[in-house]
């Protein structure tokens, strides 16, 4: 196994075009586990840690551009935390401090696990994923980017550049259920925005369907919204929890989230 370490975005895109089988690695919190457990032996790793263009965040007009290399620790601080509070709450639930210092938003999108903690808060904020290859860049709404269990809409020669969000600045929260009080993969998770501006309720859940899924309703449907969210789920029984519990928990969480956000 070899490691390619591009120093610029152009070089990264060129290498990815030349080696479409190369596995991108940023924080390594997913890729390294697969390597250590001998579940994956890619011929090539594409180490994106030296690509400056992927780091941090910036603002373009009203849009926040979160670089693919933005860590969870970054998302818990400063402007990002102020403007995307549910994402900050979700980031706080990720692993341990060490993992939050390494794991990235781009990695969460790249892995596209139904349990990805950053996905629900980005879905409720109608995030758009910016991807690029040597052929050019394109923008894909996050909902369309997530296509299946650990599958996303990236082509073989593409890299994730950033996530674009126009912060709603509306009342929002994130909650995650796990059988212990820290360092868990979500049994199920939920982000909710009560968008008074648009007159809309938006919820997105994780670990209760093949992909993190967005549910919307009119703002006056608060009473039936918990049932709508639970109904949109298609959970399974697995070692982390039962389908019945996940549906039940989504109902409870949605009701609590609405209470928080409507208060």
């Amino acid at each position: 196994m070899d490691v390619l370490t591009p120093r610029s975005l152009d070089e990264a895109l060129r290498l990815k075009a030349e080696h479409p089988g190369a596995v991108s690695i940023q924080g390594g919190t997913d890729v390294m586990i697969a390597l250590n457990f001998d579940q994956a032996r890619p011929e090539l790793l594409l180490n994106l840690n030296e690509v400056v263009e992927l780091r941090g965040w910036s603002r373009e007009n009203g849009t926040l551009r979160l670089g693919a290399g933005l860590t969870y620790a970054d998302a818990m601080a400063d402007v990002v935390a102020d403007e995307l509070p549910a994402l900050a709450e979700a980031s706080r639930t990720v692993g341990s401090p060490q993992i939050r210092n390494r794991g990235t938003i781009g990695g969460n999108l790249g892995t596209a696990s139904p349990a990805g903690d950053a996905l629900p808060p980005l879905l409720v904020e109608r995030a758009v994923v910016e991807v690029a290859s040597t052929r050019g860049a394109r923008r894909v709404p996050l909902q369309e980017f997530l296509v299946g269990v650990k599958r996303n809409a990236l082509d073989d020669d593409e890299l994730i550049l950033s996530v674009l969000v126009e912060p709603s600045r509306q009342s929002q929260t994130f909650m995650k259920v796990g059988p212990r009080n820290a360092m868990v993969i979500a049994v199920c998770s939920l982000a909710v925005v009560v968008d008074r501006e648009r007159g809309e309720l938006r919820a997105a859940f994780g670990s209760a369907a093949p992909v993190a899924r967005l549910v919307t309703a009119a703002i006056d449907e608060a009473e039936s919204f918990p049932e709508q969210v639970a109904g949109a789920a298609s959970p399974i029984d697995d070692v982390r929890g039962t389908a019945a519990y996940r549906r039940h928990a989504l109902r409870v969480l949605t009701a609590r989230a609405l209470e928080r956000c409507l208060a």
Partner: peptide
């Protein structure tokens, strides 16, 4: 949240 059931998961503010 970390001083409530559910801990870092932020699942309750005292409800239930």
């Amino acid at each position: 949240a970390i001083r409530l059931p559910g801990g870092a998961g932020n699942t309750t503010r005292g409800e239930g």
